[in-house]
């Protein structure tokens, strides 16, 4: 599933990275605790989270995540977006809660990495 398809399925908006919209992902990790993301993310290349601070982008960077999806209407500030731009990590935001976000993407064939 491409980032563009995820955006459409989740009624999300691009906060950064429309030019990355054609990147394809198969495995997704979701958590608000970044240490858990670091421990268990494995081969996942998309991160779903409701946590909104610069360490989310840093964590994504360490794991070569290509897209962060912020749920529950969370909106990263300009500093976070600048960091994401610098690392070429696409950023989507959706109003869906985390459970619903995961469910929608699962229905579209995405899976957890572990």
């Amino acid at each position: 599933m491409t980032i563009r398809e995820m955006k459409e399925a989740l009624d999300a908006k691009f906060l950064y990275g429309e030019e990355l919209a054609d990147l394809d992902a198969q495995f997704v990790f979701s958590a608000d605790m970044m240490s858990d993301v670091l421990a268990y993310c494995g081969k996942c290349s998309v991160l779903i989270t409701g946590l909104c601070n610069p360490q989310v982008v840093r964590t994504a960077e360490m794991l070569d995540i290509v897209c962060i999806i912020f749920v529950r209407g969370k909106l990263p500030d300009e500093n976070m977006l600048a960091l994401a731009r610098g690392k070429s990590i696409a950023v989507l935001a959706t109003d869906h809660y985390m459970f619903t976000t995961c469910g929608i993407l699962y229905e579209h064939g995405l899976r957890g990495g572990a």
Binding site: D32, M33, M34, S35, D36, L38, A39, L51, N53, Q55, V56, T59
Partner: peptide, 10 residues
């Protein structure tokens, strides 16, 4: 802030 869950050293 997303840390302090007792996973750092492990």
């Amino acid at each position: 802030l997303g840390f302090g869950a007792g996973m750092g050293l492990p």
